[in-house]
Amino acid sequence: MKLLRVGPVGAESPAVFDRDGVLRDLSEVVPDIDGALLADDAAMDRVRAAVEGGDLPVLAAADPAGDGLRIGPPLARIGKVVCIGLNYHDHASETGAAIPAEPIIFMKAPDTVVGPDDTVLVPRGSVKTDWEVELAVVIGATARYLESDEQALASVAGYAVAHDVSEREFQIERGGQWDKGKNCETFNPLGPWLVTADEVPDPQALGLRLWVNGVVKQNGSTADQIFPVAEVVRYVSQFMTLYPGDVINTGTPAGVAMGQPEPKPYLRAGDVVELEIDGLGRQRQQLKDA
């Protein structure tokens, strides 16, 4: 299923695309799309049955934006956003970094998450705001000290497109860890949909692409990940408990501004970034000054 949330900021309601691509209202079936729903097998079965029944109210016959509907983040009440750095061979190469022996983990605050087409703000004083298209993994069952890839994938509820916006000067040149360059407001557009895991048979066979002002900058595949999705989830569970409604951003392929020749084409107000992942939908953000 393709689950999403539509409506004004802070007042989104649950929705779903049926098999014909019609957007339908889920608000009479479930209160929202969040970790509690994803962890409740009976509630998810009710959603599937309602979709198959074909009686849910129609919200839009095609693209929600075309009907004036804002698409919000597809997941409410996110517990934590865990991120994996340098997780593509080609991205490590373009930045001159050694292939990590273990996954590099950092965190983003849940309040960095915005809708897939919401405005992204260039922080005040920023000179190195960068783009990163990423596969987001949404957790649907508590994951603690997992022992196998099978257990890891069984804890995944679904997948989504994430934009791990980064400010490289804040991240690398201003002291401390990476947090300052990763947690600026609006720095994690998510969505448009949460695609349930049963519709993504192989998370290591997804193409990822990103454009800036219509020019392709990233064109990669999750097959190039150093640590595949299952290994990432299993590994992270050794250091922290993952709960339903947590999100893991699994890294970005080559093509970021930081990896390009001088003068590096960092983002500025007025730029438009578009990104997509096979089967998971497309995002579009215009940048403005904070």
Rank of each mutant, 00 (worst) to 15 (best):
I104M: 10
Q283I: 12
A50R: 06
G207F: 13
V29M: 02
P31G: 00
G281R: 01
P8R: 05
A11Y: 03
R70W: 11
V165K: 04
Y159F: 15
V195R: 02
M1S: 10
E262W: 07
L210R: 10
E12Y: 06
I78T: 09
I139H: 00
C184H: 15
V273G: 08
P253V: 10
L280E: 12
P110W: 01
A109E: 11
K2M: 13
L23D: 02
G270P: 10
P110Y: 09
W178T: 13
G53F: 07
G79L: 00
V215I: 15
W211Q: 12
G68Q: 05
E173R: 15
V256D: 11
A141Y: 02
N188A: 14
V82G: 03
N219S: 15
G79S: 03
R268S: 13
T196K: 01
E274R: 12
F227W: 07
T250M: 02
V229I: 12
I139Y: 04
G68V: 00
W178Q: 12
Q260L: 15
A205D: 13
A143G: 00
T112M: 02
P31Q: 06
M44H: 00
V200S: 08
R174N: 11
G220S: 13
L208G: 09
I99Q: 00
L4Y: 07
A101Q: 14
D45W: 06
W131S: 00
P100T: 09
Y266V: 11
Q225C: 14
A11K: 13
G255Q: 04
H91W: 02
A160C: 13
E199W: 03
A136T: 01
V22Q: 08
R5E: 02
T129L: 09
G207E: 10
L153I: 13
S13L: 14
T186K: 01
E262K: 13
P103F: 02
A205F: 08
P261V: 06
L23I: 03
A42C: 04
K182S: 05
I33W: 01
K108Q: 09
L26R: 03
L280M: 03
V137H: 00
V161M: 03
A92E: 04
G140M: 02
A257I: 08
Y243R: 15
T196I: 07
G140Y: 04
A43V: 06
I84E: 04
R24D: 03
G279V: 04
A230H: 07
T222N: 07
V51Y: 02
G175N: 06
A97L: 12
A143D: 01
A49E: 15
D289L: 12
P189A: 03
D67S: 15
A152H: 00
V82C: 04
A205P: 09
L194D: 07
K2R: 15
G279A: 09
P100R: 08
D246T: 11
D278K: 04
Q286H: 05
G281W: 02
A62G: 14
M1H: 08
C83T: 07
V247W: 00
M107G: 07
I33S: 04
K180N: 14
P100A: 10
V133K: 01
D198Y: 01
G214T: 08
K288N: 10
T129V: 02
R284T: 14
V29I: 14
Y243G: 11
G79M: 01
V216W: 10
V113E: 03
A60E: 05
D18N: 05
L4P: 10
D118G: 07
A230Y: 05
L75C: 04
A223N: 12
H163W: 06
G176R: 13
E134F: 02
S155M: 08
Y88E: 10
D63P: 05
D90Y: 07
